Amino acid sequence: MNDPDLISIGSFAERAGLTASALRYYDDAGVLRPDHVDPLTGYRMYSTCQLAQATQLRQLREIGMALPVVRELFESDAAGASRLIDEQLEKVTNDAFKARDIAAALKDKLNDSPRFVLCELAGPVFAGAVDQILASALDDTADPALNGVHIETEADAISLTATDRYRLATRTLVPLRLPTSPWAGTVAADELRSAVQLIRRSPKVTLEAGDLTLDVRLSGDDVVQCHRLTGTFPDYRSVFASLEPVTHRLILDQRQISSALEHAPEKFGIRVSGFGSSLLLPDSVIALDGAATGPEIRVWFELTTLYPALSHAVGNEVMFELRGPDHPVTVRCADNGDLTTLVMPCRADLL
């Protein structure tokens, strides 16, 4: 044949990122038929317009989709195809979690060190604290410790801390059962994030520490393992201790300011004056409910830096501690323990 739109199986395989043997297999499976088969030689010829489908087939196989499902996807409309892809992603994710747990269990058996019971917490409360802290965790391969949540137990509380260099958040909780002795370690943030839904559904959880992992024992006696990270977590206490003295304190209604910021631009300001405090937006000034102390000042923030600290706040009010327009701002709130977040403002001359 001399049809210029038809190409040999070898050329088509090379352009599609497949092999000729794979294309023959997909033909026999009825997933991707050649456009033409020479009746004398049996040579398979493909049309260039089939390249998009062949590429999609390769990608679907790369995410582990079975051929019967691929065939169903090719016969579906856009909504049906999207549903099948979502179902495959969920399956792959669940398989990965299962493999991770099995690997963790196998590695744990290699480690004969005893487990150390840290404390007992209400599962939904611990899950909520993890959610609040993860907003400040970082995905940074250069500094593994910043990919984690630092957990510490003391005589009367447990604290979780994370930082992405622009925010530093620490959350304390009062356990149902007090820690038996002090402990500190940094655990993988992504593994805690993956475990949150299981933890949230468990009425109680017990934290148990080993040499390599922090185990979260659920009410049904199932165990979620989070690996401890190497590297040194930043000394956040010295960060707080080195801050300049507080010059202004604002106690604001958390719901009001969070609601106002839902439609805020990239950058906005907070002003303190003799009339109280207000939110400075490009086209409006919103008076904020609450109390404010200190002389006239304006501090500017990026929405992506401050809003997570407010959206994860606990209790009805939030306290801002200001130290000047260019100094870190402490955002504090309290309810069954407290949440403290250190937020960097942005420069006014960059607005």
Rank of each mutant, 00 (worst) to 15 (best):
D5E: 14
S21H: 12
E152L: 08
M45G: 10
T93H: 15
Y166D: 08
P328S: 03
V174Q: 12
P328C: 03
D283Q: 12
Y166L: 12
L281G: 04
I297D: 05
Q254H: 10
R115C: 07
T330S: 08
D235M: 07
R58G: 04
L106F: 10
A169V: 08
F12H: 01
G324R: 00
V92H: 09
T186K: 01
R167F: 04
H248M: 07
A291Q: 15
D289L: 12
M319P: 03
P203E: 09
V224N: 00
V149D: 01
G30S: 08
V69W: 01
E90V: 13
R83C: 06
M319I: 14
R33T: 13
N316Q: 14
D283N: 13
S278M: 05
S202E: 02
T41Y: 08
Q50R: 05
D283T: 10
D131T: 07
D221W: 10
A155T: 11
D86C: 11
P114Q: 06
A103M: 11
D27K: 02
T230A: 14
S278Q: 06
K267H: 15
Y43M: 06
I251A: 13
A188M: 09
A66F: 08
T247K: 09
L322W: 00
M344Y: 08
D86A: 15
D215P: 04
F116V: 12
G123L: 04
D108S: 14
V117S: 12
A155N: 09
D77M: 05
T55F: 04
Q254G: 05
D95F: 09
R15C: 07
G42S: 07
D156S: 11
L84I: 03
L51M: 06
T180P: 07
I151A: 01
G220I: 08
R332Q: 13
G123C: 05
L303R: 14
I102P: 03
Y26R: 02
T55C: 09
